[in-house]
Design a binder for these strands. Structure first.
Lengths: 196, 196
DNA sequence: GTGTCAAGAATGAACGCTCGTTTTACAATG
DNA sequence: CATTGTAAAACGAGCGTTCATTCTTGACAC
């Protein structure tokens, strides 16, 4: 069998699992649910993922990995745009991911599960660390370009900026709001002022 | 039987459930776990909470309700302190609640569960809405006192500020950092600058 | 005080069910 | 012929919940 076929089957299972987990969370989704959604047999699924936990871990890592990839690209733009602009672009990236099938919804389940699963916790912490260095680098550049006061600490500003992103996603997911434009206006107010 | 006894028993069960749910999440905690932790019998627990879901809901509402009470008090200070000061006080309030027994840890499970349980989702959304009005009022006062540009939109600034709080808690829970002082320094940089 | 007794509180064995997983026998594919 | 997939049954374990039973409490008669 072609290697591509195997990868495709694997992805087919992961896609089915994602749909199920989005609906009901990890532990309220049964293997039967996933198997039915994937339109496969019991044995086929267990051939690719030896246990439910492996399925959860693989999917969580894939989804969270996709998120970090997008933000890495955002932070690596050359030449680097102004800070306020990068953050507004981030909002645009996040917004659709807070929708019914969005990846940030699954992230809620991943965060919850990572409190139970040390391996998943370590993975999530690693991802967060990478995002942290990206946004701190952004803050440093912004300071050097006069967008932030010269005596400001890039790490301090960076962690605040980083906190805004899941904060925005959470609000969207849990309440449906705010509108992206409103949030972006708030960002501009706080970020686009000339350094004191 | 005294009414105080009934309330105490109820709280005893809720405390046990909180400990279990913190350890293993809602659906990986069995009723037996809660019952063992509460040092009660099956029937006793079921007398106070007719189903596991009632237990989850009651606990979630209690915990989240405590959180909103604290923040309401923070926003109602008279005379209102500067914006940067209120936010830094909020950080101080949040920080211990991100520890091993902190309420924000349970909040992760509540957020996840609220994607499944519409009743819980509505409750959480309501809480978020109340916090939103508080922080928007803060932003309006800050603007009127010259802490923010006169043309800034309180709602826009408010939702950004609101997003920072769970964002900070999430970082603390998932990665152990940042230190409160670092985050507070970042807040000062972004908030304590004179209006442009 | 002391004894009585119904109502309330608490017990824990037991029930029906679903779970994740394994096994079996067999068909299709490359 | 080895790999991949199917279909179905079965496994033990553990789940949430029920209920017949036992214990406890406090008001009241004496």
């Amino acid at each position: 069998m072609s290697e591509a076929h195997l990868a495709a089957r694997r992805q087919q299972i992961l896609d089915a699992a994602r749909a199920c987990f989005l609906r009901n969370g990890f532990h309220q989704t049964s293997m039967q649910d996933v198997i039915r959604e994937a339109r496969l047999s019991v044995g086929a699924v267990y051939r690719y993922f030896p246990s439910k936990n492996d399925l959860i871990t693989a999917l969580a890592e894939q989804v969270v990995g996709e998120v970090v990839a997008v933000f890495t690209a955002l932070g690596a733009q050359d030449p680097p745009p102004p800070l306020a602009e990068v953050m507004q672009r981030a909002v645009d990236v996040i917004t659709p991911e807070t929708g019914p099938d969005g990846r940030f919804r699954l992230a809620l389940h991943v965060w919850s599960e990572s409190l139970r699963d040390p391996a998943l916790a370590e993975f999530v912490a690693g991802i967060y660390g990478r995002l942290r260095t990206i946004v701190i680098a952004l803050a440093r550049r912004a300071r050097d370009h006069g967008e932030l006061p010269p005596d400001s600490d890039p790490e301090a500003v960076g962690v605040v900026l980083l906190g805004m992103m899941p904060g925005y996603a959470l609000q969207r997911i849990l309440t449906g709001g705010p509108e992206p434009d409103v949030f972006k206006a708030g960002l501009r107010t706080l970020l686009a002022r000339p350094a004191g």
